[in-house]
Structures are given as C-alpha cells and as structure tokens.
Design a protein around this nucleic acid. Structure first.
Length: 339
DNA sequence: ACTGCTTTGCCTGGACCTAT
DNA sequence: ATAGGTCCAGGCAAAGCAGT
C-alpha cells in the first residue's frame, strides 16, 4: 500500500506538500503539483479513507433509513431505484451509503442512535414520512443533518423534504381513468399510515368528488398476507365489482393482478388497473400497467445532493423540493381493446 | 494474569520557520 | 514575497511495555 509518505519520499517533498497538492492548495507551484500528481498516478496511490476520516472526524457516509422489513426492501424496486440515485449523487462527492431498515420504530431508532454515536454516518436520508415519527423527532432534537424523501407533514420545515406532489399525481391518474370512461373506481391500499398513502387517497377522493363520482369511488384497505388480499378481492367482485382498480404502489399492484389472474378476471376486459411508481414490475406485467411515474432515482439524486450540502453548510435553508411526475399509459387501461 | 500507561499508525491542515 | 519545509494536534484502536 502506497501512503502519502511514500509519495512524498518519491517526489522529494514533505508529506504536507503532497497533502496540499491533493487539496489543490494555492501555495504550491504548478511544477511541484505536476510532479507529485505524476508520482501519485504512477505509484497507484489512493488516500487512506479511514485515516482521513479520523482527522476530519467525518465518515463521508450517508445513512439511508427505511421503515420496512428486509423482505419488502428487496421486493420493492422503489427502494433500489432511490438507492441508485442517492449513490450516484454521493459518489460524485466522495461519499458512500449505508442502509438500515426495520419495521418497528424502537429498533430503527436504536440503530440510528448507534450509527451516530459510533460516527459511522454524517447524515441521514429517511425514505418515508410519517406522522409523529420518533426518528425524525430525535434527529431534529439532536441537530443531526437529515433529509426526508417524503412530505413535510406539519409544514414546519424541520428538515429538507424531497417529494412528489402525490395529491396531484393521484388526481391525474384518477382523471385519466375517468376520462377513459371508468366511473366505478376502487382504490386499494395496504397502509394508510405513511403520508404518501394519505395523499394518494386524498387525491383520488378529490378527483372523484370533482367529477361528481364520489358515490362510485371506494377506498379499500387490505392486509399484507395473500389470504386477506384474496378475501378482499372476492368480496369486491361478488356483485359486479369495480370497473377500474387503482393500487397504492407497484408492489401491491403486482400482487393484485396476480390474484385477478387466478380469479380469471381479465385486465382490462373485466377491470382496468393502474398504479403509482413505475418499475420493471409494472412495465413487464401482463398486461403492462398504466402508472404515474414518480422518478424514484431523481428523488434519490436530489436527496443525496441536499444532504451533502446540508452536511457541509449547517445553516443551509430548509426547503421542499418537488420532483415532477408523469403518467405512462399502457394496456391495462385500454378499455376499447378488451371489450 | 491483570491493570493501566505509552506508543504507533494513519492523514490533514494550521502555525510557524527557512531558503531563495 | 514566494515556495515549500517542519512540527504538532487531532482521534481512535491495537500493540507494547511496566508494574503489581
């Protein structure tokens, strides 16, 4: 392993001079910089990050906090795409990422505290927004930098928030369904705790109300196990059933259309389906699903950039960044084709 | 064997010094 | 004045060492 001392020896300068060359310091001549850089390249020198972190008292690592079980994290493409965006933003600035996830608040909070006290991270990105969240409350109280991918629920600007306009996204997709001639529309959700779920439900209800279809719109909550999804769908389709189903996200959508297939309910001939968050799951579903693309990678990239600037400048103004959404129409809502 | 102190390894960056 | 050197603190873990 080549260290800064080895480079200094080879270049005939002191380690301080090499350090200053790395930082492109003013007081070093162009000739010396050129010479030292050449030796760094030829010798394959790479700074010892552990030693650097030791002196700067920074880990150059961003913690991603996910409030879900490992199984759900692996299954849901949203997380991997957000992670991709965050990683890209971090890599550019010499940061790396570390993910922690749990379903219950207590163990997640314990994990977050441990990461802070052991100085493993310089800041966090929370991949959710939830009312009365103990982790956000703790980070705010501790003055530890964090960015939320989600909604500023209380509008108190406690942190930087990176989010889509989920109400508007839900309004748009509902309006699309209505515009296609569907009026008996059911929205299926598997949670109503997170702000994103609440906003999408609200947008759906707003659009249905606006179209004078409140009586035709329903929001149905299902559990997590296959049995409860199956029971819910059976009772939903017992007498007539809805004309269109709007699901909360891509994973729930995949589960629902698999059940519909088993029930021999055809999409879109018998029922149209649409959902939020585009991914391979929705793109290559049978049939391909109409979605609101929420650009998770973009959310991750924005959050990554924001947390790094926040770490470097603690006085940075807290703000809300909204990533635009886009509707992608696919076969699952093409009424005329199936009927 | 155990306890407790000292040294070492890592790199950065500021303060200060020296040679031209 | 400029370019570059020396010294040292900072922070922690692990290894080395001395004393009981």
């Amino acid at each position: 392993m080549v260290t800064i001392k080895d480079v200094a020896k080879m270049a005939g300068v002191s380690p301080s001079t090499v350090s200053r060359v790395i930082k492109d310091h003013d007081g070093i001549s162009a000739a010396t910089k050129k010479k030292v850089r050449k030796i760094m390249e030829e010798s394959g020198y790479a700074p010892n990050i552990a030693a650097r972190n030791l002196v700067t008292n920074q880990s150059n690592t961003i913690g991603l906090v996910i409030k879900s079980g490992m199984h759900e994290v692996n299954l849901n493409p949203f997380y991997s795409e957000v992670n991709l965006g965050v990683s890209e933003a971090c890599r550019k600035e010499g940061f790396s990422t570390l993910t922690t996830s749990a379903t219950d608040d207590a163990s997640l909070l314990a994990e977050v505290k441990e990461l802070i006290s052991s100085r493993q991270v310089d800041g966090f990105i929370l991949l959710y927004s939830k009312e009365d969240d103990p982790i956000a409350a703790f980070l705010s109280a501790a003055g530890f930098p964090y960015v939320v991918i989600g909604k500023d629920i209380h509008n108190d600007r406690e942190a930087i928030y990176v989010d889509n306009d989920n109400i508007q996204a839900a309004v748009s997709i509902t309006e699309l369904l209505i515009g296609k001639g569907y009026s008996k529309i059911t929205m299926i959700v598997d949670n109503d705790v997170f702000a994103v779920a609440r906003d999408r439900i609200r947008g759906f209800e707003m659009a249905m109300h606006e179209a004078g279809l409140s009586a035709m719109g329903r929001v149905v909550k299902c559990g997590d196990d296959p049995r409860s999804i199956s029971d819910m769908l059976k009772s939903l389709f017992e007498d007539g059933g809805p004309e269109a189903l709007l699901t909360l996200d891509g994973v729930l959508n995949a589960r629902i259309i698999s059940h519909l297939y088993q029930m021999k309910i055809r999409i879109p001939a018998d029922v149209a389906t649409a959902t939020f968050s585009d991914s391979l799951l929705t793109k290559f579903a049978a049939p391909p699903q109409t979605v609101v693309d929420i650009f998770p990678e973009e959310l991750g990239k924005e959050a990554g950039n924001e947390i790094i600037t926040l770490i470097r400048d603690e006085d940075k103004l807290k703000r809300i960044i909204t990533v635009p959404t886009r509707i992608i129409e696919r076969r699952s809502t093409q009424k005329e084709e199936g009927r």
